[in-house]
């Protein structure tokens, strides 16, 4: 990811062609951040202006505003350019409030936890 001249930024792997554009940043922990790329370096450290986190649970989603974020490069999985004329999400998805998405998130987490403990107990039974 070298510094490229203004005429070949669109040919290189550098993030320069994404500067000042609205992006989706996928992080290693599965979080999705949206914001405008203002700066970056060779490690994919990035500065997002007007960042927000998009939480998706099933068909519900919510954008939680965060402000100005510096993301450490090692946590970045993917940086995608968002097409402005295309719908960001499938039409069947509904925007809900922050409280509501947090509740849905908790329900989902509890369900996976329950599945985990049940599996653990089954494994225990198999051992006998």
């Amino acid at each position: 990811m070298s510094w490229a001249g203004p005429e070949d930024i669109y040919l290189s792997t550098s993030l320069a062609s994404y500067l000042d554009k609205k992006l989706l940043v996928l992080l290693r922990d599965g979080r999705k951040l949206l914001g405008i790329l203002r700066s970056f370096d060779q490690f994919a450290n990035a500065v997002l202006e007007g960042a927000c986190e998009r939480i998706i649970v099933g068909d519900l989603y919510c954008d939680i505003p965060l402000g100005l974020y510096i993301i450490r490069g090692e946590n970045v999985v993917l940086i995608g350019e968002l097409e402005l004329e295309k719908e960001e999400l499938p039409p069947h998805m509904n925007m809900v409030s922050e409280a509501e998405i947090k509740r849905a998130q908790k329900v989902e987490r509890d369900a996976t936890d329950l599945k985990g403990t049940m599996r653990k107990r089954m494994e225990f039974l198999d051992m006998d």
Partner: peptide, 12 residues
């Protein structure tokens, strides 16, 4: 579903 409108991307 969040990847729907991504047409170009950078992958680390």
């Amino acid at each position: 579903p969040h990847m729907l409108s991504v047409r170009n991307c950078f992958i680390r």
